[in-house]
Amino acid sequence: MVKPQIVVRLPLHLLEKLNNYAQKTGTSKTDVVVGALAQYLGCAETVPLNQRLAELEFKVAAIEEKVN
Rank of each mutant, 00 (worst) to 15 (best):
V8R: 12
V2I: 12
V8W: 04
K24N: 03
V2G: 14
A36V: 07
Q5H: 14
F58L: 08
I6K: 10
K17Y: 06
T25M: 04
V33F: 01
E65W: 05
L15F: 14
G42D: 03
L41Q: 13
K66W: 15
E16N: 11
Q51V: 12
E65P: 04
G42Y: 01
E45H: 09
K24D: 02
I63D: 04
T46G: 07
A22D: 01
L53P: 02
D31W: 02
I63V: 10
N19W: 05
L14S: 10
I63M: 06
Y21S: 07
V60H: 04
K66E: 12
L14R: 14
Q51I: 11
H13T: 15
T30P: 00
L49M: 13
H13W: 08
Q39F: 10
N50T: 10
L53S: 13
I63W: 02
G42A: 06
F58H: 12
T27Q: 11
T25V: 05
Y40I: 07
N19G: 03
A22C: 03
I6D: 05
I63N: 06
L10Q: 01
K59I: 00
D31N: 05
K3T: 10
V2P: 15
L56Y: 08
L37W: 08
N68F: 04
K66H: 12
T27S: 13
A44R: 04
E65R: 10
Y21W: 15
E16Q: 14
A44Q: 05
V8G: 11
L12N: 15
Q51F: 11
Q23E: 11
D31C: 09
V7G: 15
E55Y: 06
K59D: 00
N19C: 09
Q23G: 11
G26A: 03
M1C: 07
M1L: 13
V32R: 00
T27H: 09
F58W: 07
V2E: 12
V47G: 00
Q23S: 13
T25F: 00
T30F: 05
K24S: 06
A62C: 15
G35R: 01
L10T: 02
E57W: 05
Y21F: 12
Q5E: 12
V67A: 06
Q5R: 07
